[in-house]
Structures are given as structure tokens and as C-alpha cells.
Design a protein around this nucleic acid. Structure first.
Length: 971
DNA sequence: GGCCGAACGTA
DNA sequence: GTACGTTCGGCCC
């Protein structure tokens, strides 16, 4: 019967018998892997509930995905047929051949369980066929449908990201029915990515038909497929690449050189063959619904509306009513379709065009070259009370760059560019017509400083600094980059930087003109000042306009998603504060640096000669590759271990071991490395970083640099200036105050441990901090009963290990003990401080459930891999998730202190105290020597009380303050 | 010129 | 074991 159907369909699909190029008649079956999808949706979306309190986050994600698919049905490669396949199997044929199959699969989270039946409801609401079979796994059903469809010449898209299904990609049917076979690809709707043969090859390093062989070797801990112990994706791929296929790799094992891998391959050969069978998809399952019954038709709005109402999906309901972006519509799409599709509220990750916004039109931008035109824009901006702005400059360094132009945007395709410095700064050079820079800035200043007009920037700190150098104090300011950071920190590995191009792609579906297309790259790069005005206008006005659009999409999400508090109270007010610190910069003693550099150079030279002498040949000491070969191959020293790159490791611990064995060269190389590092990274680089205009070093802080909320510092990085060794400390002495001034350093002592004691509610630790005790000594007492140098050092290590998310192996490595012993210490720690264990368990539960961690001030950090099936990935996320609330709360506290510091000093009449640097738990100020006595207590109080009144930490904040004419002396 | 991994500086 | 940024060699195009 089935055959009859298939033949019929094949005939339908190709009127006139023409298969090859008839896009319009080609059938395209979409197979949605529903079960896998909701697991992913569950972990990516917030824990929403419907009006009755049923958790529906995953269902919501699933519904929007179906909506989008149904919407694509008129596209060239959109679906003509669609089925949702659900996993109903508790057992399958795989259990018959391997009883352990899926034996250790964990129970799904409890707020996901009630969502499974809703998936069926949602599918029915769309009037889509839902296929599930007892004792047949979804993957096998999908494979069977895919196979049957391609046999008929249909194309197939599998909506899933399951790696097992990637075996099917590209596979075409044999032309046994006289039909040209269709092709199979996959669609990952979460990442909005098509997976075709090249993507599979990129992921696995082999063609799709060999993916099963790779999977068989690597196994799968979630499905409990054994594979070969110790073989992961990398090794599996390599083996298959080298030996052709699984049997080839197994056959080659006996001839391999002696290694763990060789033994395991030989011993595990049968397990690998069994795994191969387990990962093979069954392609001949009976098809419970005939292919042509999967035809996608008009979707009746009635059941869908009822479903959306019932679960409170109001935004989708609105879309259904207005018919905009409605999947129920079957008419051809209007050209405006893309823009009328509403953004889903809960999906920060969604890539959907904006409501009522036309696409960007570069032709609509105005190049403003007259004062009259400029005045019109300024007037309209005042009326609009919100203007997105951007500055174009001649370089990336805000403290050195010349202002080249300013762009403004008031709405979609309502943007302009005001060129001010094109043609360069040469007074006699030929320049394009443009408004005089000073005159234009004079007009812009009232707008940019007006209390009643919100200025929106993307990384506005940069523009603030550029304009501050022209006497304009831009305020008030919103920053789309910071908003994105407050909403989506860590949410997607592809969006770490919150840069405009990425945000535009993600939230607007818009690709910005790449900067390199305008200014070129590398040697041939030109300054923005050299760019012709028409091209400059497109690029610059687009930047302002995209910023305007991003603001419109992102800002409302703050209140919806609980980001307002951290944005308004911490990160947003910090922008001008950090901008001001950057502008002040810090003085460094160039002569002293140069002196150190010369001294280091001499010592480096001497060490080099000694090392070459000991080696018996000349080589590049800075090359770990060459060094490893010399030490372990040529000189035959023991202790060589190779990392995954196949290279010997020659890091500090390895060299220290060698030195302890009496290898003179190892110690010399360590000294050489320290001096080389200090010289190239600090004494040389810092001299080069001195700004010729100000004579000071101006770092650039990134406000979105660390997922936890910390700042980061670049160009130069002033957050990693040496302090631990005496020789490194000399570099801190090169950071100096101006004559008559001193530097004052104030740091939070042990802030992260104090926060851990508070957040985990550990009475012993809280008491110890309250009493001003030595916290590591107290820990040693609790742990070992005695305090001496050794137990205190161990206790300190363990305390830090806790903050970083502990593992027995990690702690063992640090303490130089066996993992068992380390585990015993961890157990003891948890026993003595049960609050710590409760904190860890509660934190992980929360993150696994809702996808993010939170600081005491409500800063979210997302951990998309917290439920990954890859153990290393998952455990890495777990450690980061344990650390993030502590590190992040610490970051919040010092940021709050920074925001309050200026006004507090001002109130105290201390107008000459300048905050210069922040190093995570330390603030560095420059101030007149005479102000130290008055400023110290103010600074201390602001820092100590920074959490209040929002949060009361029931442990005192210890602040240590010192001052001196150099940073080194201030410690 | 651009990218990656190793190594190492900080909290 | 957390969070970063920079330098270098080695390799690619």
C-alpha cells in the first residue's frame, strides 16, 4: 500500500517528468525532531509559566520554531510536507543487542516533564502530523521517512542538531525507481544554521557516511554507547581519517607503536563494533503515516488561537490576529513580510526582524554639509528626545584619534552623517566640502549635553572620550552594548563581545557594512578621514541607525527580563566614570622603564649564552617546540609529556621539576622566560604606550569584557602589572604620581572569600571575618585541627579551590596529593562548612533550571552548556557557574563604589582626587599629598558601604589603603 | 597579514 | 579548578 502512495507522489511531484531543475515542483519534506528540540529550548529559555502555573518555557520555544517553519513554506527551499517526530520509545531494538543502552540516562528535569504532552498539543494546534511509535526511536523514524522521501526524489530537511542524524546528510537514494534521488540536509533552528555536507565534514572531519564510524569509536556517555575508552571526538576523527573507516582503524591497531590507544583499540574492538551497530540508524521502519499525508496546507487559525490563549502566549496571539507573520496565511508573502514579523518577547537569542521597521536603506541617509541642514537635524533631535549617535575617527585609540565626523539617527532610515575632518588635518590639502569642525561642535554641544535628550551609543564610552577631548560632556547616555551585556552575558558563545555587527545580525537580521570594506585592511588600510563622503555617509549613518534600532529592540527587554536594576544602578552610571579614568591615564617613569629594559636585556643576553652553551647548540629559547626537542629528544631528560598538539610541554611546572632533578638549563630557561616576559610585555610596551600629548598611559577598559561582570583592560592591560616577584615589583615602581601628588591604592581584602562566607552562610567563616582573624588559619583549624605553615598553605589552596569550583583532580594537582586524598579533604571541607556545599548544589540547580546564574545585585551570567552531554564542557560550565555569582558580586560591589566615589569626594570638598585605575578588587587614585589624610577615610567608607542599601553583607568589608609616590610604594 | 596554541602576567 | 590580555613562534594563505 505504501508503495502505491509513493509512486503516486512521485508522479505528482514531477509533472512532465522533469526532476532536475523544477524547483517549483520539487517536494520538500521537513522532519522535526520534536523531543530533542524541547530539551534544547528548555535549557535556552527562561522558566516561563502559563496562567495556570504550568511551566511552558520549552513549549513556547517549540511553538515559535514551528511558527517560523510554517512561515517559510513559500520560500524556495521551504517545506511542502512536514511531520513532527516524537520519541515515545522506552526501549528499542538496541536494547536487545546491548542491554546497557541508554541505561544511565538521567531523569528529565521536573519542570520539563509536564511540557512533553504539551508539545503534542502544540503540534496538533498547528494541525501538523505528529508521529510517534512505541519501541521505535525518533531517530529511526526520521531516518526511515528521510530515506523513503529521497527515494521519491524529494528533498528532506531534518530539523534537529542531533549529531547521530548527521549520518544522513547528503545521502541520496539509489536511482532504483528511475527517479533521481533527493538530498537530505539539516536545520538547526536554534543557531539558525543549515547543516549540509560541508558542515558535517567540518564538525566530524569526515564525510557523513563515515560519521557512524567516528561515533562508534568515541561512544556517547548520554546514550551509554561504549565506544573505545579514552577515545574522544578528536582521536576518533583522526583514526578514521588515517585508516579509512572503523574496520581499517581496528585492523591497523596491532601495527601501531606502543601506546594506551593501541591497547585500548585492540581490547575494545568488539565494543567498537557493537557501538557501530548501535549508532546505525534503522532506515526501514514502517511508516505509520503515508508520505503524501504529510502535505503542509493552510493552518486553520481556530485551534492555534485556542492553544495560544490557553497558555498565555499573548505576543504570538497578537501576531495571529493581525495576520502579520501568521503561519495561518497561505497567500503569497508581501514584500513587507520580513519587517512585520514581531519579535518574540522571551527570546533574546531570536534572530527576527523588528516590528514596523523597514530594512536599512543606505540611500536614505543625508550627508550634512551646511549649518542650516545641521540645525534642522539638531532641532528634530530635540523634538524626538532620543537620538542615536556615533563618532568616526582616524584611529581606534580614543585618546589619540582625530574626530572625523559625527552621525545621528532619529529612526529607521532617518539618519545623517556630518563629516568634520575628511581630507585629513593638513591645512593646505584639498578637502571635500564640509562644515567647520568647531562651528559644528558648537551647535551639537547643547544637544549632546541636554538633559532632555537621551543620547544612545554603541560602546558610547569611546565616543564620550573623543567628544570630551573637544569639550563636550555627553549626557544622559544609553549604551546598546551595555544593555546587551546586562541581558545576554554568556548567553551565546558567538556573542561574546556584544559588538554592533554581531548584535545587528542577531537582533535585526541585518548585516552591517564591514569596516574593512570602507577602510581596507593591513598595509593598504586608509584612515576614515580619507574615505569619500558618499561611502563614509553610508557607513557612518548606518552605525547610528543600527544603534537606534538596537536600542529599540533591547532596551524594553531590560524590564521584561529583570535587567533594569543592574543596568541602571551599576553598569550605565559607570560609563562616564570609567571614561574619565581612561582620560586621566597614569604617569609612568620612562627613564626608569628604559633602565629596567636595558638591565633585563643584558641579563637575557647572558642567560641566552649560558643556555646555548648547556644545550651545545644555538636555538630559539622562546620556542617551546624547539626547547622541548632539545631537552627531551636531544638531551634525553626524563619527564617529557606531550599535550594534544603532539608537542612537549615545557611550562613552568615541567621546568621546575627538571630543575629539581638538577638540570641546570631548566632553571636558566625559567629565569630567561621571566625576564623576556617582563621586558617585552611591560618595560618595552609601557614606554611605547605613553601618549605623546598627555605624557601618560591611558588604558582602555572594556565594560563587557568578562562574562562575570568584571572589567577588562587593554592597550595596555594595566590589570596584570607584576607584583608577586621582587623583580616584577620594580615595574610597579615605574607607575608614579605627578610632583606634589601621591598615588593611593585601596583594595578589598579577601573580598571573594568574604562574599562566599556570606552567600553560602558559613557561620564559622563569618565569625572569623567579623573578628578580623586570619581566614586561612581559621580554615586550617577547622580542617586539620592545627595551624602551622603547611596546614595554613593547604587551607588557603582549598579556600581558593572552592571559589573556583572544586574538582578532586584539580585540587590534587595543586596540593601534590592523590585525587583520593584531595577528595577526602573536599569532603572534610563540606562537612565542616555545610553551607558551602548547599551553595554549590543550589547554584547548580538554579543554573541548570533557568540557564543563568545571578549575583546578589541581579546580574545574570548565562551558561548555555551547563547541560551539555559532553562531560568536559558540562563540568567546565559547572565550575564557572559556581564562581560567577561570587566573582560577579565582587565586581558589582567595586563598580558601585566607583560610581559613588566621585560625588562622595566632591561632597567632602576633595576636588583634586582622581580615580585612575581599577584592578578587580583595587582602586588606584592620584591626589595631592595634603589630601591623603582626608581622602583615605572617604574612599574607605565608600568602598566598605558599596553594597548598601541594596544588599547587606553580613561580613565586614576589609579595606586596605596605602599611599606613596609610586604604585609599588602605595602597597 | 592573519590565526592558533603555548606560556605567563594579574585578581 | 574561576576570570581575563599579551607575546611569541609556527603555520597558513
Amino acid at each position: 500500500m505504501l508503495r502505491a502512495h509513493e509512486t503516486e507522489i512521485a508522479a505528482d511531484a514531477a509533472p512532465g517528468g522533469c526532476y532536475g531543475n523544477a524547483m517549483a515542483t520539487k517536494q520538500h519534506l521537513y522532519l522535526v525532531d520534536g523531543s530533542a528540540y524541547i530539551f534544547r529550548a528548555y535549557h535556552r529559555l527562561p522558566p516561563l509559566t502559563d496562567p495556570e502555573g504550568t511551566p511552558v518555557g520549552a513549549v513556547y520555544g517549540y511553538t515559535t520554531m514551528l511558527w517560523k517553519l510554517a512561515d517559510d513554506l513559500h520560500k524556495a527551499d521551504g517545506p511542502t510536507h512536514l511531520a513532527v517526530v516524537l520519541d515515545k520509545a522506552s526501549t528499542s531494538f538496541r536494547n536487545e543487542i546491548y542491554s546497557e543502552y541508554k541505561a544511565n540516562r538521567p531523569e528529565p528535569p521536573e519542570d520539563l516533564v509536564p511540557q512533553f504532552p504539551l508539545i503534542r498539543d502544540a503540534t496538533r494546534a498547528f494541525s501538523l502530523p505528529c508521529i510517534e511509535e512505541p519501541d521505535v526511536e525518533a531517530d529511526d523514524i526520521i531516518a526511515s521517512y528521510a530515506r523513503a522521501a529521497t527515494r521519491q526524489g524529494w528533498d528532506v530537511t531534518i530539523v534537529s542538531s542531533d549529531k547521530d542524524l548527521m549520518q544522513l546528510v547528503g545521502k541520496c537514494a539509489e536511482p532504483d525507481d528511475g527517479v533521481e534521488g533527493g538530498c537530505i540536509d539539516m536545520l538547526d533552528t536554534m543557531k539558525n544554521q543549515r547543516i549540509d555536507v560541508p558542515e558535517v565534514e567540518e564538525k566530524f572531519g569526515v564525510a557523513p557516511e563515515l560519521v557512524g564510524d567516528v561515533l562508534a569509536l568515541m561512544g556517547d556517555s548520554v546514550d551509554n554507547i561504549p565506544g573505545i575508552y579514552g577515545v574522544g571526538p578528536k582521536t576518533a576523527t583522526k583514526l578514521i581519517q588515517e585508516h579509512g573507516d572503523l574496520e581499517g582503524a581496528l585492523a591497523a591497531a596491532p601495527a601501531m607503536k606502543k601506546s594506551k590507544l593501541k591497547e585500548r583499540l585492540i581490547e575494545g574492538a568488539d565494543m567498537a563494533r557493537l557501538s557501530r551497530v548501535l549508532v546505525t540508524l534503522k532506515e526501514d521502519c514502517p511508516l505509520p503515516v503515508a508520505l503524501d499525508d504529510l502535505k503542509l496546507d493552510a493552518i486553520p487559525p481556530g485551534p492555534l488561537a485556542a492553544f495560544l490563549d490557553r497558555h498565555g502566549f499573548t505576543s504570538l496571539r497578537k501576531r495571529l490576529d493581525t495576520g502579520t507573520g501568521s503561519p495561518a496565511r497561505t497567500t503569497e508573502l508581501s514584500p513587507a513580510k520580513q519587517e512585520t514579523e514581531a519579535a518574540a518577547p522571551a527570546e533574546g537569542a531570536s534572530r527576527q526582524p523588528l516590528p514596523d521597521m523597514p530594512p536599512c536603506d543606505h540611500g536614505a541617509y543625508e550627508c550634512v554639509t551646511s549649518l542650516e541642514a545641521l540645525d534642522r537635524w539638531i532641532e528634530r533631535a530635540f523634538a524626538a528626545r532620543l537620538v542615536a549617535f556615533d563618532t568616526e575617527t582616524s584611529a581606534l585609540d580614543a585618546m589619540r584619534a582625530d574626530l572625523v565626523g559625527v552621525s545621528l539617527a532619529l529612526g529607521p532610515n532617518d539618519a545623517c552623517y556630518i563629516p568634520l575632518g575628511h581630507g585629513g588635518t593638513d591645512m593646505f590639502a584639498e578637502k571635500p566640502e564640509q562644515i567647520d569642525r568647531e562651528k559644528a561642535l558648537e551647535r551639537l554641544k547643547p544637544l549632546l549635553e541636554s538633559d532632555t535628550v537621551l543620547k544612545v551609543g554603541q560602546n558610547a564610552k569611546y565616543d564620550l572620550n573623543v567628544l570630551a577631548r573637544h569639550g563636550i560632556a555627553v549626557a544622559p547616555v544609553d549604551d546598546t552594548m551595555i544593555v546587551s551585556f546586562c541581558l545576554d552575558a554568556g548567553r551565546d558563545e558567538n556573542l561574546r563581545g556584544h559588538g554592533m555587527d554581531e548584535l545587528a545580525e542577531r537582533h535585526l537580521g541585518h548585516s552591517c557594512i564591514p569596516f574593512k570594506d570602507v577602510c581596507g585592511t593591513g598595509k593598504k588600510a586608509i584612515s576614515f578621514a580619507e574615505v569619500a563622503l558618499d561611502r563614509a555617509t553610508c557607513y557612518a549613518a548606518e552605525d547610528a541607525e543600527v544603534t537606534w534600532r538596537l536600542h529599540r529592540v533591547l532596551k524594553p527587554r531590560l524590564s521584561d527580563e529583570g535587567g533594569t536594576r543592574i543596568y541602571e544602578r551599576v553598569d550605565r552610571p559607570l560609563i562616564p566614570v570609567v571614561a574619565s579614568m581612561e582620560r586621566h591615564g597614569i604617569r609612568v617613569d620612562r627613564e626608569k622603564l628604559a633602565g629596567l629594559s636595558a638591565q633585563f636585556a643584558e641579563e637575557i643576553g647572558a642567560l641566552e649564552a649560558e643556555i646555548h652553551g648547556l644545550a651545545g647548540e644555538s636555538f630559539t629559547i622562546g620556542s617551546p617546540k624547539q626547547l622541548g626537542e632539545i631537552l627531551f629528544d636531544r638531551m634525553g631528560h626524563k619527564g617529557g609529556r606531550k599535550g594534544k598538539s603532539g608537542q612537549y610541554s615545557t611550562d613552568q611546572s615541567v621546568l621546575e621539576d627538571l630543575a629539581a632533578q638538577g638540570v641546570a638549563m631548566a632553571g636558566k630557561v625559567l629565569d630567561w622566560r621571566q625576564l623576556s616576559k617582563l621586558r617585552s610585555t611591560y618595560t618595552e610596551a609601557l614606554q611605547a604606550a605613553i601618549n605623546p600629548d598627555t605624557g601618560r598611559v591611558h588604558t582602555s577598559y572594556s565594560l563587557v569584557g568578562a562574562q562575570t561582570g568584571r572589567l577588562s583592560s587593554t592597550d595596555p592591560n594595566l590589570q596584570n602589572i607584576p607584583i608577586r616577584t621582587e623583580i616584577g615589583r620594580q615595574i610597579r615602581d615605574c607607575f608614579v604620581s605627578e610632583a606634589g601628588n601621591v598615588l593611593l591604592a585601596a583594595d578589598y581584602s579577601q573580598i571573594e572569600l568574604r562574599l562566599a562566607a556570606h552567600m553560602a552562610d558559613v557561620p564559622e567563616l563569618k565569625d572569623a571575618f567579623a573578628a578580623g582573624e586570619d581566614i586561612h588559619a581559621r580554615t586550617a583549624t577547622e580542617m586539620f585541627g592545627v595551624v602551622d605553615r603547611d596546614t595554613r598553605a593547604r587551607a588557603k589552596t582549598i579556600n581558593f579551590a572552592i571559589l573556583y569550583g572544586i574538582s578532586r583532580w584539580g585540587l590534587a594537582g595543586r596540593l601534590g596529593v592523590e585525587p583520593d586524598e584531595a577528595q577526602a579533604m573536599i569532603d572534610r571541607y563540606f562537612e565542616r562548612f555545610p553551607g558551602i556545599q548547599r551553595y554549590i548544589v543550589a547554584t547548580l540547580e538554579k543554573v541548570r533550571g533557568c540557564g543563568y546564574s545571578e549575583t546578589l545585585f541581579g546580574r545574570k551570567t548565562w551558561f548555555p552548556r551547563i547541560n551539555s552531554k559532553r562531560q568536559a564542557e558540562r563540568q567546565g560550565s559547572e565550575r564557572a557557574a559556581i564562581n560567577a555569582p561570587i566573582q560577579g558580586t565582587s565586581a558589582d560591589i567595586i563598580k558601585r563604589a566607583m560610581v559613588r566615589m566621585g560625588p562622595a569626594l566632591e561632597d567632602a570638598g576633595l576636588r583634586h582626587v582622581r580615580m585612575l585605575l581599577q584592578v578587580h578588587d583595587e582602586l588606584v587614585f592620584e591626589l595631592p599629598e595634603n589630601d591623603v589624610a582626608a581622602a583615605g577615610p572617604v574612599i574607605e567608607r565608600v568602598m566598605a558601604e558599596a553594597a548598601l542599601p541594596s544588599v547587606r553583607i553580613d561580613v565586614p568589608m576589609g579595606i586596605e589603603i596605602g599611599s606613596g609616590t609610586s604604585w609599588g610604594a602605595a602597597h
